[in-house]
Write a protein that binds this DNA or RNA. Sequence first.
DNA 1: TATGAATGAGCCTTCATTCAT
DNA 2: TATGAATGAAGGCTCATTCAT
Lengths: 195, 195, 195, 195
Amino acid sequence: MSKGEETRQFIIEKAAPIFNVKGIAATSMSDIMEATKLSKGSMYVHFENKEVLACAAVDHNMKVLGDKILMTVGKAKTAKEELFAYIDFFNNPLNPPVIGGCPLLNFGMEADDTNPVVKEKVNGGIRFTQRVLENSINKGIANGEFKPDWNAAEFSTVIFAMLEGGNLISRISGNNDKMKIIVKTLKSIIEENTL
Amino acid sequence: MSKGEETRQFIIEKAAPIFNVKGIAATSMSDIMEATKLSKGSMYVHFENKEVLACAAVDHNMKVLGDKILMTVGKAKTAKEELFAYIDFFNNPLNPPVIGGCPLLNFGMEADDTNPVVKEKVNGGIRFTQRVLENSINKGIANGEFKPDWNAAEFSTVIFAMLEGGNLISRISGNNDKMKIIVKTLKSIIEENTL
Amino acid sequence: MSKGEETRQFIIEKAAPIFNVKGIAATSMSDIMEATKLSKGSMYVHFENKEVLACAAVDHNMKVLGDKILMTVGKAKTAKEELFAYIDFFNNPLNPPVIGGCPLLNFGMEADDTNPVVKEKVNGGIRFTQRVLENSINKGIANGEFKPDWNAAEFSTVIFAMLEGGNLISRISGNNDKMKIIVKTLKSIIEENTL
Amino acid sequence: MSKGEETRQFIIEKAAPIFNVKGIAATSMSDIMEATKLSKGSMYVHFENKEVLACAAVDHNMKVLGDKILMTVGKAKTAKEELFAYIDFFNNPLNPPVIGGCPLLNFGMEADDTNPVVKEKVNGGIRFTQRVLENSINKGIANGEFKPDWNAAEFSTVIFAMLEGGNLISRISGNNDKMKIIVKTLKSIIEENTL
DNA sequence: TATGAATGAGCCTTCATTCAT
DNA sequence: TATGAATGAAGGCTCATTCAT
């Protein structure tokens, strides 16, 4: 990795959590400057403008999240364990796997009406996540863990939606009680579909 | 209502959708000026500063949403109809009941890490919404529509979370397919608990 | 004149000579700030952006020049005196009637390849100036001062071009010798066409 | 020519038309970088700073112009043909012999009040050009082509000034009509002084 | 109450320039 | 010689806010 590429990566890593916490609009280039201890001009050596940097930060946050999901799910042995691992992974939004909380929710809600580029990135992230779940369910159906008529596409949507909704409630209420209900509910549905 | 109060209300009504669409940080006082055709000074006659106006806009958006929910649910005759009405009310996030989409999601995600005042307002909105659902379920249990052992508190959380999650998916993907799955799933759970 | 209009005019008057001396590109909003002792924000209350202010400054410089020309020419009694007055008016480019020298030359040369709006303004100024000369010649022909077959359109172009060219030489060489030659030449052509 | 000298020359050739078109102030080192496809550092290996590069560009533009003039005039056989060749050379400012138009006019007007170094360079260019004309006239007088009492110094100034003035008019108006008048006028004066 | 002129801090960005490699 | 990363001052401009009228 060249010096330039290294610095670029360094900036992204410092910037990503800031964007995820404050939002794109509320994050200034000066915030990034301060976090990186680099000069203002230096930011523009590596990123054409704030929008490009913000996009890189969005990508980074989603990649970190995606990698952690894959790693977590990857450790599971059975399909059911995979689903449980995924659900437990999002278990505690007050201490989230990515600083600032789920970037899909954060950037999605900021970008939906105003930033088509970021919106499309988030769209990719959502589809990826649901595909992970769908794969686990289909795998469980194929290997006889789950009922064969379980609708993988539909339930992956249900898991994703409920966890994101629970995310919202927990982060806003400042406690995890509702998230526990959601986790319990999802797990019981999974049990119902387990043979 | 005095002239001043009238103007204040007028500003709020013009400002609310702008804040809900663009977010608080990305909305400038000039945006509101333009929308109201009022002078810059006039804004500060009625609102101490941007934060106060933003809070009023958050309140307004949530009140509009709450009123529409109550009106929609109020038209239903049975408890089940109430739940169905609520679900159908959030049926199409691409053409949402409030311009800019669900303010709980929008302001919640912007404020969770940065704005305790707005965060607490959203918290109130979330609790209100879930209480509406809980009331319907409890009413249905009381009048024999629903199974007596149905957990109202838990299922109201499930409905709310799934609809908000579906909201995210639909608005970002730009189509409603996943929302339809969620609606179907929720209604089938309700049917299962209907006597 | 409203307070705002007054300030706007004040800014233009302070800005005009700066733009004419330094050129549009080399003049910064800070330069104007300093000259007016106004705040940076104040400039943008009265002018949308630098381009708009620059255009107003171009207009102002040309208007000042045009008014002085008309006043000077207006004092003359005969057509010949008018032409002589015009020529003498541009007599000394080292101490020009407008600070920074002829704005037609200054802004024309800066704008010709890069700024169509200013270019068109300068075009208007050039046409105006030549029309003044043409009118004087035609008046002299009509009243029998000048030979009837003198081509007014052509000679007004010749006067204008030679004076602008002389302007260039004088300002760059830092002395007026060549301008004197031009003045002498022009006057002798006029004499030749005087009856 | 060493590698270094070669690169230096290459940069000058790419930079010269840019400076002549946009002006010195409005041309950035990045513009030159882009045009040469060289690195930013490379510019500073060959030129101490922007001012030095700009000066080299001014010199280059004037040299190209001067060489073309000499070549054009050199092809003529008689003194009158030389003068005519010179005039025709500047015939069409809309398609000028040097990209961006006459550098004497361009840089002269930008530098007169702000850049003594460039101003002096332009001064040299103006004197050179007039000397070329003066030489032709004197040659014609000496060989009996022109009237012996024709004032070479004065008429060379007249030609130069009128052509530069015509240059301004043509480039700003976007058409050549006025330049034709000037060419016609100059040639008829020459004819009048031809024996 | 309403206006809009005025402010200055702060925004994103570009600039000319330096320097280690 | 050539590179391109790094710098910080300065660029144009927007911001939230104040205040005299």
